[in-house]
Simulated scan of single mutants.
Amino acid sequence: MGVMTIDRRVRALDALHGLAVGDALGSQFFVPAHRDALTRRGLPPGPWQWTDDTEMACSVVAVLQRHGGVDQDMLAASFAEHHDFDRGYGPAMNRLLRLIRQGGAWRELAVGLFDGQGSWGNGAAMRVAPLGAWFGDDPAKAAAQAARSAEVTHAHPEGVAGAVAVAVAAALATRPGTPEPREFLDEVLGYVPPGRVRHGVWAARGLAHVPHAHVAVRELGNGRNTSAHDTVPFALWAAARHLADYEQAFWTTASTGGDVDTTCAIVGGIVAAHVGAQGLPGHWATTCEPLPDWADVASVPAGGKDSH
């Protein structure tokens, strides 16, 4: 078991709170009555409910707090125990977590998904930013632990690579100072294994100077296909472009559509790892649904910035 420090816990909770707010407000884009106001950057009434992105991220943080690292058996058990069907899980994940809860072996079940390929979805990436922040002083360890966290549900190498890329980005985001976007993505690339996710992050690096999200999305995707390689590169592009401004990072990400709650959860977690809980817009943080008691984490803090 690793040794938990206050700094590690604070960094992870900052990222978790940012992830939850991004997820919860992003999920409002799928509520027809709220969509028009959101496209004009208006805010719907609360509370904003978070989705499976936040629920699974809470399990990641709970396991880190208890074990200092990723105990895969404990993480699988927590995912299964706290699985709420109404939080928007995909069909394959609903079935996998139900079978684990009934005594199935997660190693066999995760590898067996999609005709034995394992899942390359964005689910492992969407929940992992707090883990990256936890290991902010050691990006290589963040990458290794992110891979372990992914394998519990997303055994395909691309699903693992997506989690690694997000975790490393969150780890790097905890450093003081705000790097240039291309420099930031260059460092992330140093830890991402070869494949489609890595190619996408490389393309995001090449677009780091581009100010328009819709231009980036044409090359990188926006999560519409819910795959790691269709989600993570754009999320990292948006986070790198707006690492010091949570509100702008959210609207830039959300403006392109696609899997909005997940892309905004990823971006929110990375950016909050950099700006801290005090960098969240105050009204957004207090309108987000509180985090669950079982996760042993504080509710989303009040935030430190006024929002428009």
Rank of each mutant, 00 (worst) to 15 (best):
V232P: 09
S27N: 15
M126Y: 13
S27W: 14
L97V: 11
A285E: 01
S59E: 11
T39Y: 14
P193H: 07
V111Y: 05
A12I: 04
H199I: 13
T287D: 08
A170K: 04
V61I: 10
V164T: 11
H209T: 01
A62F: 14
G22A: 07
R224S: 15
A124P: 03
G22K: 07
S255V: 14
T51E: 09
A110T: 07
Q145Y: 00
A213E: 11
W120V: 01
D23E: 04
R66L: 11
H283W: 15
V267N: 12
V275T: 10
A272M: 13
L19D: 03
H274S: 12
W134P: 05
V197A: 05
A235G: 11
L236G: 13
M56A: 12
G195M: 04
G223T: 05
V160S: 11
P211R: 05
G200F: 09
L243K: 06
N225R: 15
H154V: 10
R148V: 08
H274Q: 02
V297R: 10
E55Y: 02
K141C: 12
G26T: 06
G258R: 13
L64I: 03
L25K: 06
F250S: 09
A239Y: 11
G112T: 05
A15L: 13
V70M: 12
W134I: 12
H83M: 05
D245Q: 07
G258W: 03
V166W: 06
P179M: 03
W48F: 11
D86C: 04
P292C: 05
L185Q: 11
M1W: 04
E151I: 00
H34V: 01
G282A: 15
A76H: 09
E183G: 15
V267K: 10
A249Q: 10
G112C: 07
G190W: 07
G103P: 06
P176L: 13
F184W: 14
L189G: 06
G195S: 10
L243D: 03
D137P: 03
V166M: 04
G123S: 15
P44G: 01
